[in-house]
Design a protein around this nucleic acid. Structure first.
Length: 506
RNA sequence: GGCGCGGUACCCAAGUGGUAAGGGAGAGGUCUGCAAAACCUUUAUGCGUGGGUUCGAUUCCCACCCGCGCCUCCA
């Protein structure tokens, strides 16, 4: 089945055909780096990650550019409040974002760009717009003249006249001749960062950066542009206006917009204050892969209501998949193979691939893999699963996980690596550092101590399991059960299988 | 007010003009020293409400109700 996506520009699902065969150029709107990202932001990034992973799975070479907005009102305000240079301030949140991205298994885009590294390019594009009569100056700023760009509103399907009566108009104090116009270059203000340019001393408006950086790396017309649905208007509408006015060519062929994460019936957002950051959830004991699973499990065009119950359900689902993979890998099966099961594996692969081809229907792709899990487990219990069936099933799982990326149980390792948790000894050492710093609560890794929890080291766990198994062999089940209970209390779950005792962290 | 999205079982959620995927949770059973995991059985005559089209609608059309988003910085 052909790959197809819902394109905001046409309001319908369209077959996907890149400009250049086998190659996809895509741009995604990243973060404004003035604070830790919340999981609503990550819902969109995970959708985009699944998009790029599926494109690659389908054999496309993907050239993916993501921007980071590191100059705007919020970043300027934050840097000022912190009393540090803008660049230092935004660096902090870019670093935090990169840690989060690794925890969530987000593939790094081929190109990640910062707005402040492209100011010269933005100035040049604004000059082109001026030369072509799409821009005008006012009070040291430069504006885009919407009335001069036919087709404005085609993405958001905004009726221009609707913007007048009763509409809340831009509260910005800059002077525009038409309320619909938007700023390309903002005149420098007292006490704010600025760039000297032929346009005067100032800084770029928000929308221009995405036009400039996307076209610089992807060309004047490229395949996919995506972001959260809140960016449709005005951000992406304005990008189209700027880019197409400057080049006279179509800007983007497929616009993909992700729906929002909802909390208690409302959009999760900074301004409403109803948000969780990734580290908030980690501090509550939740695992990044469970968060990834939850955020990936609902197709991107549907609002997703975030609840802790949902997060728990996600963890349970991952555990089921991992338990299956463990069994598939470790259990002994009779020699030979079953053509029926081989066919079953083939069908499951087909089903999940078709689901993703269909506008990234992740819910259906999940159903496909769970169907397979149940059927395979049933066959195993009936002794109908054979040794040579193993590879086919592992192959389907591995392929499925190239997209979902949740099967690897490496949360613990990563959380240790980034200092969110520590082994008992290291945790005490970190506490000592924190108290020496006068209770600032920041570890050498830069994370607050509230996030640190203690964990048993692997060797300690294995030692206790050996003790328990010795007790079991003696028939001393009381001692064995005591050890199991103690480990459970420390967050370690034991399972006795035919292949020996297996353990995993809760 | 304009534009858009959505209302499916206890919870999350897919889906189709022909009689409701999947996950979680609950109940009963099998297996196990006991657990855990796994398996089996079971939980929507029903898909917001009312009309209409049709042999047949949850799926198409109309109206209405409810929730949310965007229209202002925002993933």
């Amino acid at each position: 089945m052909p790959l197809r996506f819902y394109n905001t520009l046409s309001s319908r699902v369209e077959e996907f055909q890149p400009l250049e065969p086998n190659k996809v150029r895509m741009y995604t709107c990243g973060l404004t780096v003035y604070d830790y990202a919340h999981i609503g932001n990550y819902r969109t990034f995970i959708f985009q990650d699944i998009l790029r992973r599926h494109l690659r799975y389908r054999g496309y070479e993907v050239l993916h550019v993501m921007n980071l907005t590191d100059v705007d009102d919020n970043t300027i305000r934050g840097a000022k409040a912190a009393g540090i240079p803008l660049r230092d301030f935004t660096d902090k949140y870019i670093n935090a974002f990169e840690v989060d991205a690794q925890l969530l298994n987000l593939q790094r885009p081929e190109i990640v760009v910062r707005a402040t590294d492209h100011v010269d390019d933005m100035v040049k594009l604004i000059q082109v717009l001026e030369a072509k009569g799409f821009a005008y100056r006012s009070d040291g700023s430069v504006y885009f003249s919407v009335r001069d760009f036919p087709g404005y509103g085609k993405l958001a399907q905004i009726d221009l006249s609707g913007l007048r009566a009763g509409a809340r108009v831009d509260s910005d104090k800059y002077d525009k001749t038409d309320p619909r116009d938007f700023v390309l270059w903002k005149a420098a203000k007292e006490d704010e960062p600025y760039w000297d340019s032929p346009l005067g001393r100032g800084r770029p408006g928000w929308h221009i950066e995405c036009s400039v950086m996307s076209m610089k790396y992807l060309g004047e017309t490229f395949d996919i542009h995506s972001g959260g649905s809140d960016l449709v208007f005005p951000h992406h509408e304005n990008e189209i206006a700027q880019s197409e006015a400057a080049t006279g060519k179509p800007f983007v062929r497929y616009w993909l917009h992700g729906e929002h994460l909802i909390v208690n019936g409302e959009k999760m957002s900074k301004s409403l204050g109803n948000f969780f950051t990734l580290r908030d959830l980690i501090a509550k004991g939740h695992k990044p892969t469970a968060i990834r699973y939850l955020l990936a499990s609902v197709p991107f065009r549907k609002p997703l209501n975030f609840t802790f119950d949902g997060l728990h359900q996600a963890q349970q689902s991952i555990d089921r998949l991992r338990n299956f993979r463990y069994r598939l890998t470790m259990e002994k099966f009779p020699a030979g193979e079953s053509s029926e099961l081989q066919e079953r594996a083939r069908a499951a692969r087909q089903a999940f691939e078709d689901a993703l081809d269909d506008n990234l229907n992740t819910a259906e792709a999940l159903a496909a893999i769970f169907d397979l899990v149940r059927d395979a487990n049933t066959a195993m219990d009936r002794r109908e699963f054979h040794d040579s069936d193993r590879a086919a099933f592992l192959d389907v799982l591995e392929r499925w996980d190239r997209i979902f990326a949740v099967l690897e149980d490496n949360d613990h390792t990563k959380l240790l690596k980034f200092g969110f948790i520590a082994t008992v000894e290291k945790s005490r050492a970190a506490d000592a550092v924190i108290s020496k710093e006068g209770g600032s609560g920041v570890t050498p890794n830069g994370y607050t101590s509230a996030v640190l929890t203690e964990a048993l080291a692997d060797e300690e766990i294995e030692k206790r399991i050996a003790e328990r198994n010795a007790a079991r062999r003696r028939g001393d089940f009381a001692s064995a059960d005591k050890i199991r209970a103690e480990l459970l209390a420390a967050g370690v779950i034991l399972e006795d299988t035919k292949a020996g005792t297996r353990w995993k962290r809760k």
